[in-house]
């Protein structure tokens, strides 16, 4: 199943798009509903590494494409996160750990895009840095919460898609040496 990650991406896209539509509603308050970081957790459990990395990168690129963020900043971070998650599956072995990973991954990815976007807008230098820090907190906290909330429905869809493609389920128990 070489193209499994691509099909999975198509299955994930409606969620990403729904997040964009949600951002549309919150636009007047300047908030972006960000779920890209949470979307890579479930595939990382079951896909092979070489599949989860392009999947994560594409999720990142989809977010970047419509926003003035330096090219590749988010995508490459998500690719790195995918490598990290696939190489230590202990971290996403059971549901609490998966939720924790979703929150962490989403918040970290949000931190990355927010910081890079601020840098691209020239808002990081000098005194501006001090107004940047408080602004950073709200989206990051929001991203952590959104990551947990959105993870379950997204992973249900993603798991269903992976089941259809016959990708073996991940082992729930502790990994044998």
């Amino acid at each position: 199943m070489g193209w499994a990650w691509l099909i999975l991406l198509l299955a994930t896209y409606p969620w990403l798009f729904a997040a964009d539509l949600a951002s549309d509603f919150t636009a007047s308050s300047g908030l972006v509903i960000f779920i890209s970081g949470a979307c890579i957790v479930a595939p990382c459990r079951r896909l092979r590494r070489w599949q989860s990395v392009p999947f994560a990168a594409c999720v990142g690129f989809l977010f970047e494409a419509r926003r003035p963020i330096p090219d590749g900043a988010l995508a490459l971070f998500l690719a790195g996160a995918a490598i990290f998650l696939t190489s230590d599956k202990q971290l996403i072995r059971n549901t609490p750990r998966m939720l924790r990973a979703a929150a962490a991954s989403n918040a970290a990815a949000c931190l990355i895009w927010f910081t890079f976007a601020a840098g691209a807008a020239g808002q990081l230098g000098g005194a501006k840095f001090f107004s940047f820090i408080p602004q950073l907190i709200i989206p990051v906290v929001l991203a952590a919460v959104t990551g947990v909330v959105i993870y379950i429905p997204v992973s249900l869809v993603q798991n269903a898609a992976m089941d259809r493609m016959g990708i073996p389920p991940a082992s729930e128990g502790p990994e044998s040496p």
Binding site: D20, S23, D24, R66, R67, F114, A117, A121, P139
Partner: peptide
């Protein structure tokens, strides 16, 4: 089509 805004941009598509 959609609107999108954050602290660093205010845009519509």
């Amino acid at each position: 089509a959609t609107r999108d805004s954050s602290s660093w941009w205010q845009r519509i598509v």
